[in-house]
Design a binder for these strands. Structure first.
Length: 602
RNA sequence: GGGGGCGUAGCUCAAUUGGUUAGAGUACCGGACUGUCGAUCCGGUGGUUGCGGGUUCGAGCCCCGUCGCCCUCGCCA
């Protein structure tokens, strides 16, 4: 062992080490000068230890210590000393190391920002110097917990006989879905690889290949605009099983989540995860990813609305729309008229509702508010009865086409839950949503598109006639959700060539295109494809939720910005003319602007 | 692609209605100090107000354009 190498980490030392000689390596977190004594806090991944330079012990050494600065990397040799005034905020606070030898392993220029647990620098700056940001304890803790979680998942899946199989990152572009990231081929001019949006087809082919139980912690790429919960490249726990039905996949995932949450986070998940039918979820919560930490469910008041004197309500029902409401317990006091009309009303408007109807229930059961005059006396009592409202409650209603009613009320429900503190941090309510519709309208083309993906098996595939009422066909797709986030989705797949062809055909992919783009999958189904199904779970989102982090970026070592750039390495960037030439690529349009030359950073 | 917010010292922010030499805290440098733990005290260095243009006697502030970051709608089978 080299002379400068550590005998302990900066988190190791306790009072039972007092008197022993140790060597610590680490970064200078802080230093305090007191004339003839100098304190330096030495930090590594494991903790912080105070090391002390004393002038009267060694004047020359003390002088060297005085010249040290933040983020210098040191090796100090010294003797562990019991402190007279311990620091109870630190695990190592009972002791300190009195330095007898110092080696500066690397000096640091004054860093562009201070490495603090609670960051003061902007996220932009921290991302540009992410390697400094990574020194922060909360960032390290997040990454360590992420690693523990993934390790637990791997361990559990391996114990169940799942085989970790790598699938290609350079693959082919497929139609539908998200925009692909493309990689030009040098060898094949004008041809491109695509980075996988998911390993979907490959994992199905693993099943055809007899591998039975596949999993992969897989990187996926989607060239779409970002959000706080979306990155252009992200990680999925991807798995697939043969000879299974929905329950088999759900059970494996449920067990794996329970085990991994326990091992990585010390969180005991309630079991079993509730299972909701898709239509039930949408009807009760307004969307397919309900936050089950609180109630306040949607109530259909269409029947009362239809016979009310409120034109907006009647119109909505008469034109085939819906009127639904939320009863906010105790909301009468918690929400002022301004809160309701401006904040909640504005929110409803942002999600397409033309207005927000509301009423507060008075002590006598009478209503007050925007719709009070249409629900006086018995009508008001009847409305309260349907809504389950008590005096002091706040009632919110949206009247519109059903889709908008659900969307707006889903958001209102979450906003109200936030405001009332019902979305408890540290509470984790997983749930399954089952039986998604097989198809949904594509707003752009007006045609039908797969709600999940085109490899999803329909329920009762041979009994249904797609063309008659495509919107009513159920698929064998399922989502796993938690606290209002979609965390994963999967399905039992089509394993019969004729069914797959039929679905493709219905989606407007003709035989020629099928053969060209999915020929290898369809061919595979000629040679004995087992029934199979699987799921993919978003690791980044799981960790973000489990740690209560505000952004997915907080659990990714080197995340990208909202415009998909890497502020640290300045990706994407321009490339040399020679590289473009080799790839047979010419630039045009905006790409030719001089300012595009240096790429994202210029 | 649309909407909103932000951009001033290394960092975090302030700067009256458009008005004198753009301030504070922190970091950094120097000094004092033998027990601190985001030490304290004294002094100092530090500015293309993101960038370009315009209006004005005068612009950090107003207008136009542009770049970057964040949130969001669309988008994300």
């Amino acid at each position: 062992m080299a002379r400068w190498q550590r005998t302990h980490t900066c988190g190791d030392l306790r009072t039972d080490h007092v008197g022993s000689e140790v060597v610590l390596n680490g970064w200078i977190e802080n230093h305090r000068h007191h004339g003839a004594v100098l304190f330096v806090d030495l930090r590594d991944r494991y903790g912080v230890t105070q090391v002390v330079f004393e002038q009267e012990r060694d004047g020359a050494l003390f002088e060297r210590g005085r010249r040290l600065g933040a983020e210098d990397v040191l090796s100090v040799r010294g003797v562990v000393n019991r402190r007279e005034q311990p620091n109870p905020d630190r695990a190592t606070g009972e002791i300190e190391v009195v330095v007898t030898e110092l080696e500066v392993l690397a000096e640091s220029e004054p860093p562009p920002f201070e490495v603090l647990d609670v960051p003061e620098a902007s996220e932009e700056l921290r991302m540009r110097y992410r390697y400094l940001d990574l020194r922060r304890r909360p960032v390290q803790e997040a990454l360590v917990k992420r690693a523990a979680f993934v390790t637990a998942v791997r361990k559990h899946l391996a114990s169940l006989g799942f085989v970790d199989i790598e699938t290609p990152v350079l693959t082919r572009s497929t139609p539908e879905g998200a925009r692909d990231y493309l990689v030009p081929s040098r060898v094949h001019p004008g041809s491109f690889y695509a980075l996988p949006q998911s390993p979907q087809i490959f994992k199905q082919l693993c099943m055809v290949g007899g591998l039975d139980r596949y999993y992969q912690i897989a990187r996926c790429f989607r060239d779409e605009d970002l959000r706080a919960d979306r990155q252009p490249e992200f990680t999925q726990i991807d798995l697939e099983m043969s000879f299974v039905e929905e329950n088999d996949v759900l059970d494996v995932v449920e067990q794996t989540m329970v085990a991994a949450f326990r091992e990585a986070f010390g969180i005991e998940l309630a079991q079993p995860f509730p299972r909701l039918d898709y239509f039930e979820a949408v009807s009760r919560y307004g969307n397919d990813k309900p936050d089950l930490r609180f109630g306040i469910e949607l109530v259909d008041v269409g029947a009362l609305a239809a016979k009310s004197g409120f034109q907006v309500f009647r119109n909505a029902v008469e034109t085939g729309g819906a009127v639904k409401g939320l009863c906010v317990p105790g909301g009468g006091e918690r929400f002022s008229r301004k809160d309701v009309e401006k904040d909640l009303g504005g929110l409803a408007g942002a999600y397409g509702a033309k207005g927000l109807a509301w009423a507060k229930v008075g002590a006598d059961g009478a209503l007050a508010g925007s719709i009070a005059k249409f629900f006086e006396g018995a009508a008001g009592h009847e409305l309260c009865g349907v809504m389950g409202a008590k005096p002091g409650d706040l009632l919110l209603f949206v009247a519109d086409e059903l889709r908008i009613v659900h969307r707006a009320l889903a958001e209102l429900r979450l906003a109200v839950g936030d405001r009332l503190g019902l979305r408890t941090p540290g509470e984790f309510r997983f749930a399954w949503v089952l039986n998604f519709p097989m198809f949904e309208r594509d707003d752009e083309t007006g045609g039908w598109a797969s709600s999940h993906h085109p490899f999803t098996a329909p329920v009762d595939w041979d009994l249904e006639d797609y063309s008659a009422s495509p919107g009513t066909v159920r698929s064998r797709a399922y989502d796993i959700v938690m606290n209002g986030w979609e965390l994963g989705s999967g399905s039992i797949r089509i394993h019969r060539r004729e069914v797959q062809e039929r679905v493709f055909r219905f989606l407007g992919i003709d035989a020629e295109e099928q053969q060209r783009k999915f020929g290898f999958l369809l061919d595979a189904f000629r040679y004995g494809a087992p029934p199979h199904g699987g799921i993919a779970l978003g690791v980044d989102r799981l960790i973000t939720l489990a740690l209560g982090a505000p952004s997915i970026r907080d659990v990714i070592a080197f995340p990208k910005t909202a415009t998909a750039t890497d502020l640290m390495c300045q990706a994407p960037s321009g490339v040399s003319a020679r590289q473009l030439e080799e790839l047979h690529i010419g630039l045009s349009g905006k790409a030719l602007r001089p300012d595009a030359e240096g790429g994202a950073g210029s």
